[in-house]
Computed example of a mutant assay.
Amino acid sequence: MKLYYSPGACSLADHIAMHEADMTFDRVRVDLKSKLTETGQKFEEINPKGYVPTVEMDDGQILTENVAILSWIARRKSCLTPTGEQGELRLLEMLAFISTEIHKQFGRVFKPTSDAEAAAAREKISQRFQLIGSLMKGDYLFGQDASVADAYLFTMLLWANKVGLEVPQGLADFAQRMRTRPAVQLALKHEGLE
């Protein structure tokens, strides 16, 4: 199995989650500007969407998109899903929220068409972080155990730090807790982000 990633991109969430799940996989670095893998292969031959994350299964099947990949990882390692009758649904709900309400907004911060657009996106992200901070049920999103959604949220918090976006203290503390996890440390090391 292979994880196609770009250092510090949203694929970091999948990288962390795969380590949390004790999965065995190869990592293939992708240059998102040139659209080439580290071996020189055209990345769009692997994933026509042209962006990471992408997981190539041992049988050659390709899986893309954070929500799908993180859900798949959680199914393989049930401790990465919240407990309870609606645990899978709550996980999917949070993954979709992070993807659509936070991740997507960062595109308007990283590549704005205007200062006003960037300011509006920053405000929206701040509001969404405030909401997530108020919904946390413990050390992690769903309580005392980390889920795949925590890996995604951590990645978004790294992006917030990169662009100087202040986050609620509870989320800053959460990010520090995440940094102490061996899976996070390993993924950051692999991506050269220590």
Rank of each mutant, 00 (worst) to 15 (best):
D31Y: 00
A21N: 11
K49P: 07
F97P: 05
T54S: 09
L186K: 14
R27G: 11
D173E: 15
V109Q: 00
G8L: 14
E117P: 08
M18H: 06
L3P: 03
G87K: 05
D26R: 12
M156C: 13
L193E: 07
R177F: 05
L193I: 12
V148E: 03
A21M: 14
L89M: 13
D150H: 02
S71G: 07
K104T: 00
Y51P: 12
A160C: 05
A151S: 13
P53V: 01
I125V: 00
G133L: 14
R29I: 08
P53L: 02
N161F: 09
F43T: 02
K104P: 00
W159Y: 02
I102H: 00
V148P: 04
T113M: 10
T100I: 00
E93H: 09
E45P: 07
D59H: 08
M94A: 05
K2S: 14
K77F: 08
K189V: 15
I132A: 01
T155F: 04
A183N: 10
H19C: 05
P112C: 14
I73K: 11
N161V: 06
L165S: 06
K104I: 00
L171P: 04
A187K: 05
Q169N: 15
A160P: 09
D139K: 07
I62C: 06
V30G: 02
D145Q: 15
Y140M: 13
S78P: 09
K2N: 13
L36H: 02
M23H: 07
D139T: 12
P182F: 02
